[in-house]
């Protein structure tokens, strides 16, 4: 008796959840995500870039202080740090691209599934 009620409740919760998910996807869900996402993506890329450069320059300065080879390690560290910064930016961009593509494919797939259910 109680089990039946619970199962019924579970079914209803699941139905509402599915409906809510499709509604969110349909109306403004994507555009709202993009508006606040642009700033976040920009900040993420900037931090990745600065972090690699800071590690390169910091490492160079440390090695210079250690071996008294100023300024050569700093120069090499700066160049390698710039390379690392670009590597980080490229990796982040590729990661974001892949994520976006996966989300789009998932949305298309679930829409198709909805269409099959109704048809």
């Amino acid at each position: 008796m109680v089990d039946d009620q619970l199962r019924d409740l579970g079914k209803r919760v699941q139905a509402v959840r599915a409906r809510r998910a499709t509604e969110l996807r349909g109306s403004g869900g994507a555009s709202r995500g993009q508006a606040s996402g642009g700033m976040a993506i920009g900040l993420r890329i900037v931090i990745e870039m600065v972090a690699a450069l800071a590690v390169g320059v910091g490492g160079g300065l440390f090695l210079d202080a250690e071996f008294g080879s100023s300024p050569w390690c700093l120069i090499v560290g700066f160049i390698l740090g710039s390379g690392g910064a670009f590597a980080n930016v490229l990796r982040t961009a590729r990661d974001l691209d892949a994520r976006q593509k996966r989300e789009r494919e998932a949305a298309i797939a679930s829409e198709r599934a909805d269409g099959l259910d109704e048809g």
Binding site: L43, R44, I47, E48, V50, A51, A52, A54, V55, G56, G59, L80, G81, G83, G84, A87, N88, R91
Partner: peptide, 25 residues
Amino acid sequence: PILIPIELISYLSRPVSLSVRLFAN
């Protein structure tokens, strides 16, 4: 000779970017 140091720096920059992101925000 070029790629390995760059990748190494990119790897070492992970804790920096991770911590700076949270603290800065």
